[in-house]
Design a protein around this nucleic acid. Structure first.
Lengths: 206, 206, 206, 206
DNA sequence: AATGAATGAGGCTTCATTCAT
DNA sequence: CATGAATGAAGCCTCATTCAT
């Protein structure tokens, strides 16, 4: 109540979307009911319809939010000191920093939805393309990227394929904790990076 | 008529599962209705229930069939002359030889389902583990695998991550034809393989 | 509007149960469809599910309501001036005061259901036991019960057997009106009572 | 195959009806499926339709068979040495000699069905009327029937009401074994008979 | 005579969405 | 702004019945 309407509106939307990810990850987009979401958000069903035209709009908004999150991650990655640090940030955030289980399930569902829903597909394509060019750019500017005769774009594609592949496996809950799982995955991913880039060995300022 | 009952039963199941993939790929597991499937198969709804206990059983059977297909692919890959040929076979079959669109959408849905359905999760985990060890083995035995200091298992994990990552992107229908898309993806995948293995240079027949 | 939520809820439940008896009597528990009930109640099918978990719950609630009705009847019977009046009240109410046809059909169905549904069986057993002890008690306290060497409990069992036997025959719609039928049945029942109890002859205040 | 067609036909009908009582008692007329019956009879579903036009015809045939059984019981009762023996036979057979549980459940369902199905109602009415006149007759001819000022018909009505009332309670499975239950019920029924008739004390042929 | 595969109508239930309060 | 009762279409599944073999 301290904030004007528009803000309260934003808060509500956020609150609903927060509830939605949980439900979507738990049951899937179409198995999660509007009532599930409203219960998770602690509000009434009707209220959701004040902020979203329908269920599809909630899904779209979620996709949209995902896009923004990825863009923020990209921004953070750009500000890392070196390429490898950038990639590590990217990888970690990719599956969700705190709840890889939840985020991965959501993203897999998002791709599944994208295969049928053109609007969602468009959003996801956009995310992918943006990230891909971002990283391509990062690589192109990086002094480390010398080892191979691949183009920066090709490297970026390899990196993203690995990231997505790992995310997909996440939902299988192999291994014990998600912490452990992430460590395993990082080890493998770093293997790829090592093949692609030479470590910027504490530069030769000697 | 020419075939005994058991076979007729198998045929029906196959017929139904064939219809199911189409519907599942088109609309998703839970959006595809039993009526959709029966219509696609050209039979009545009730008949499906003579061959499957319920919808979930159809999904499970599909997962199971996917597992067998992957195992057959693995077998074929094993019989290829060289490691790179094996990987190429693996990659191509991974997303479906004929209809990458359909198969990829189905597999993404399968992973989405695995994140909620323990039985499906178990099946998918099994597929992954089997494939992974198969390829690990292939690499271990291969003379080409010398280039890096990665273990065969680590290489296999990289390879599968890339395959799955590509499959995931498939559903976005980026680029024009699925043929073109596959070519693009192969190009990238080959880049990785080249980093991992040295080409068994047209053996030394000199 | 004048009543709080909980009451509106009770009203709806009552409304639905009222419709349910009609349908159940007309077609039987399992032949009556949820649509039948909703139509009879003048509401939509879905609304029933806001007040009852499923059809079985409607049946159970009906059984439960029957139990309460019987208990109220018992209470009224207890307050009658003499034993014979009590029994007359009991008998009349037993098959439904207004619509013996409907109530009898419902009760026969209730017993049929009880033979398969443990929960319903438990409720019906409870009704029977409560009524039986109530009447046993009534008899034990009554000065009229002197004529035979039967125990009060044995008398109560005879009385209830006759009541239930009559109720069962009710569904055959023998004779013309239900009024006539009831008269006939009462005549027979009174015969039993006369055998068991001596009329408290206009007490000897002379 | 040793018997001519007509007989084989009768056997099949009997076999099917035997299976039907079991199913009907276990699940009720309308809850029992044709498949249940065919399985219980050890034959195929289709075969039932060779001997009965449809499910309703099976129910009617069952009702009809019940009628015949009651008539046979009546005949046996008529041949008993004394009235009380007749009543005892009648009572015992009424709920099924061997499986009171099964027969009682079936009869209650039969009455429930009678309340909606005119054809079944007619059959059941017929049974009741026949039995009732049979017993009325038995009483009228009996030297024991002297104790009260009730007419034989009124006595018969009381007797049948009690029998039916007991049968109805049978489905509640009160008490432990059905043997015990029957003993209890007989005790109560005999109480009534004692009130109505004086024991034909080893006649005074002295 | 006998089988059981096949059909499809119909029943139970869920759920996105609306609207009176 | 917020609620949640109400609607009704649609989905899953069962089952009486038919029919080719």
């Amino acid at each position: 109540m301290s904030l004007p309407q528009s803000d309260s509106g934003l808060d509500r939307r956020t609150q609903i979307l927060d509830a939605a990810v949980v439900c979507f990850a738990k049951r899937g987009f179409h198995q999660a009911s509007m009532h599930d979401i409203s219960a998770e958000a602690g509000i009434s069903v009707g209220l959701i319809y004040r902020y979203f035209q329908n269920k599809e709009a909630v899904i779209s908004a979620m996709a949209d939010r995902h896009k923004q999150e990825i863009q923020e991650i990209l921004e953070r990655a750009r500000q890392a000191p070196g390429l490898l640090e950038s990639l590590e940030i990217l990888f970690t955030a990719h599956c969700g920093e705190k709840e890889p289980q939840v985020v991965s399930a959501f993203v897999v569902d998002l791709f599944a939805e994208a295969s049928r829903n053109p609007h969602v597909a468009e959003l996801v394509r956009d995310v992918c393309e943006t990230s891909m060019s971002g990283v391509t750019d990062l690589i192109a500017r990086s002094p480390e990227a010398k080892a191979t005769n691949l183009t920066p774009r090709e490297m970026a594609e390899l990196i993203f394929a690995v990231n997505d592949g790992m995310l997909m496996r996440n939902v299988l809950k192999i291994g014990s904790t998600s912490q452990e799982r992430r460590e395993q995955q990082l080890k493998v991913a770093r293997n790829l990076w090592r093949l692609l880039f030479k470590k910027q060995t504490e530069p030769a300022y000697a």
